[in-house]
Nucleic acid binder design. Structure first.
Lengths: 219, 219
DNA sequence: ACAAGTCGGTTGTTTTTACAACAAAATGGG
DNA sequence: CCCATTTTGTTGTAAAAACAACCGACTTGT
């Protein structure tokens, strides 16, 4: 566990908490370290989760099988990232995905109850972690709502307009740089790259915007 | 304020808290009631939010204007529902939507800091509210991830398969009832109703499933 | 400098969707 | 029971997207 404290310190969950404080909190939060070999399941579909987990070594994949057995990769989890925060509600029911180690991995489990039931002031920084968790979920929430706003547009052009408009608002300028290349943007907006590239050029012809690499300017 | 305590009692935020306890917590949480006339702005795009709000009377609309001024309605908020929980993180930046009263409305504001900084044991049920808020955001998170999973599929058929598969898992049976009629399902999946209806029938012809009204059976 | 790889744009074809308009079935009052 | 309304399915057409294949510009490592 000791080896991973430095990694934990860099996570959102422990942001602003010193290594020393993390060390003392690991007890308070009843943290447990589990190791997985490549291919092992960390969670299986249908399980009930009562822990929030942080990946401290390796790489995980969230995958989903549909009724007819077709497998889809939903997401992957990199070192320092959290999983399970969407399942902490008792009403949230059972897990709908599998979580699999794509390489030898180590995961730290934190009991949800211990986190959100603030303990007897023994550890001063507990409340900091509660806040971090709060903010983290809240932010994720916001990002999801935004992304849903883009993707739920019907046409590629509308998706682009929704995304670029919002990026312009965020960066408070009609000229701004996006954090994606074309393929990543297409994946993010869930459209075909070449079709999107095509549409971008049409939009430029229509005088809506200009762009050069990652820099876009709305007109 | 007193008039709305019964309404608050039924919200997710105060679930499990008695009217008496809510009354005492309103002080502790520094709750404030604001009234809006039809057409008034509750929040404006660009504002910074430091409160979580609950609508206790009327009806609100979340709307967004893109760079070229086209207005889109993102969502509406009904009595008892919360707004602002996605903006509580200090890094979440400025509000990207307008929130407008579509009829005369009343909103209660709760200071975020007061909620997540647990107070000096004066109010026993504060921690209950913290938990409720946690669970509420967490659940919303889960629902958003799920919906994103459906909508990010490319074709209508894939969207339907993703949605129906998951619903089948949730209800733990290959035969289940969905909470939408066709139009609502189409809106939820962000596709055209008639095209979806058409696709459903094709899927039935292909032997993937059968359905009757809201009852679906996967084969 | 060169080979390999990445990235963005272009084009043509096929598939899928949106849209509109309508028909059939179901629903819900009065 | 009948009329009005809602819901669902059907069809044809036009628009849009996906897909595949390719090209040229640019990077990167050797």
């Amino acid at each position: 566990m000791e080896n991973f404290i430095e990694i934990l310190r860099k996570t959102k969950l422990f942001s602003g908490v010193s290594k020393e404080e993390i060390r003392s909190m690991l007890n308070c939060l009843d943290a447990r370290l589990y190791n997985y070999k490549k291919g092992d399941y960390v969670f299986r579909q249908g399980e009930h989760i009562s822990h929030i987990t942080v990946l401290v070594k390796g790489n995980l994949l969230i995958q989903k099988d549909d009724y007819w057995g077709n497998r889809a990769i939903v997401n992957n989890i990199a070192v320092g990232e959290m999983f399970g925060e969407a399942y902490i509600s008792p009403e949230s029911g059972h897990l709908l995905n599998d979580v699999v180690a794509v390489e030898d991995s180590s995961v730290i489990f934190f009991d949800v109850k211990r986190i959100i039931t603030v303990c007897s002031s023994a550890c001063r920084f507990h409340s900091m972690v509660v806040q971090n968790l709060f903010f983290s979920i809240s932010e994720k929430n916001k990002k999801l709502v935004q992304k849903l706003g883009y993707i739920s547009q019907r046409t590629t052009r509308e998706k682009l307009i929704a995304y670029l408009s919002e990026e312009s608002k965020k960066q408070n300028s009609s000229s701004f740089i996006i954090p994606f290349n074309r393929q990543q943007l297409a994946d993010f907006l869930s459209v075909d790259r070449s079709a999107m590239s095509n549409e971008l050029c049409k939009m430029r012809e229509d005088g809506l915007l200009i762009f050069e690499k990652n820099k876009f300017t709305l007109l």
